[in-house]
């Protein structure tokens, strides 16, 4: 097989890890609060800028800057819920989606205001790992590994703890949570913090590989929504698998055509899927 094709497949798998992490965060919020955070990828952008600012501008070492960024984005997540979503929790779902769309504009332009529209990078060059004839970027390997660990951590949290179980339960029957002694608004806040934290983790991984600019969210925000829906909203396993399907389409498709056309292919697949199997690949038909 063509070595470059193998490389494309490997890179697709590595990209899939991060996309899965992002989709998981979005899926969590979607499943629990029943809201689409259109600005989810913009939270990632905020985290990337936070790390850039701490590390490249103020010289804070990365192992310290990254956790700070994760906490920062988690707090942003809580603020998004408190300030934007919870006042309109009772109104039409589409209004909630649009309100976070306003947030998207706000975050993009606020980032432009603070940092300008230039591409910035943290100026850290990680080595290339050579496996046989294959060249793989260490940053991507690291990102993949950490993303998997992050997801494992989340899975354990959701599986083992009371709050985690409540987070899974609330998506299945919102109303009776009260009978269990669960305060839904608290679960929403915790979920928002978790979703934000996952975006923060993703930002720490992405900043190793990509330049940050105010509009970077647009390059992986839409694909994240598509992955969530493709996997079946609320189905975390589905989102995980869908992330790898989409990342292969992008990576291998990009190898044969161009990166834009591979995204076109991914989006077309999404549209067709909605028509053929609206509950997603692994979703439960309601």
């Amino acid at each position: 097989m063509d070595i470059f094709l193998v490389e494309a497949i490997v890179n697709g798998i590595l990209l899939g890890g991060i996309l899965a992490l992002l989709a998981l965060g979005l899926n969590l919020i979607f499943g629990v609060i029943d809201v689409v955070w259109i600005a989810y990828a913009e939270l990632v952008m905020c985290g990337m800028y936070a790390i850039y600012w701490l590390y490249a501008v103020h010289g804070v070492p990365l192992p310290i800057a990254a956790p700070i960024a994760i906490v920062f984005v988690a707090i942003l997540g809580v603020l998004v819920h408190k300030l934007i979503i919870s006042p309109i929790l009772g109104s039409a779902p589409i209004n909630q989606l649009l309100a976070t769309g306003g947030l998207l504009f706000f975050l993009q332009s606020f980032a432009t205001l603070l940092f300008g529209a230039d591409f910035r990078n943290i100026g850290l060059r990680l080595p290339i790992v050579e496996v046989g004839e294959l060249f793989v970027s260490f940053a991507r390997l690291l990102a993949f590994g950490v993303a998997l660990l992050g997801m494992l951590g989340l899975w354990l949290f959701l599986k083992r703890t009371y709050v985690g179980t409540a987070i899974r339960a609330i998506a299945q029957d919102r109303e009776i949570m009260v009978l269990m002694g669960v305060d839904p608004s608290r679960v929403y806040l915790i979920t928002s913090a978790l979703g934000g934290g996952l975006a923060g983790l993703a930002s720490a991984l992405l900043v190793l590989q990509y330049d940050v600019h105010p509009f970077i969210g647009l390059s992986f925000g839409p694909i994240t929504f598509m992955i969530c829906v493709l996997g079946g909203l609320g189905s975390m396993v589905g989102g995980f698998i869908a992330a790898f399907i989409m990342s292969q389409i992008i990576s291998v498709g990009g190898f044969y055509t161009s990166i834009e056309l591979s995204y076109v292919l991914a989006f077309l697949l999404f549209i067709v899927m909605i028509f053929v199997r609206p509950q997603g690949l692994f979703g439960v038909k309601s």
Binding site: L104, F105, F106, S109, F110
Partner: peptide
Amino acid sequence: GAAATIYG
């Protein structure tokens, strides 16, 4: 970006 920030 200030204009768009306020707009947002």
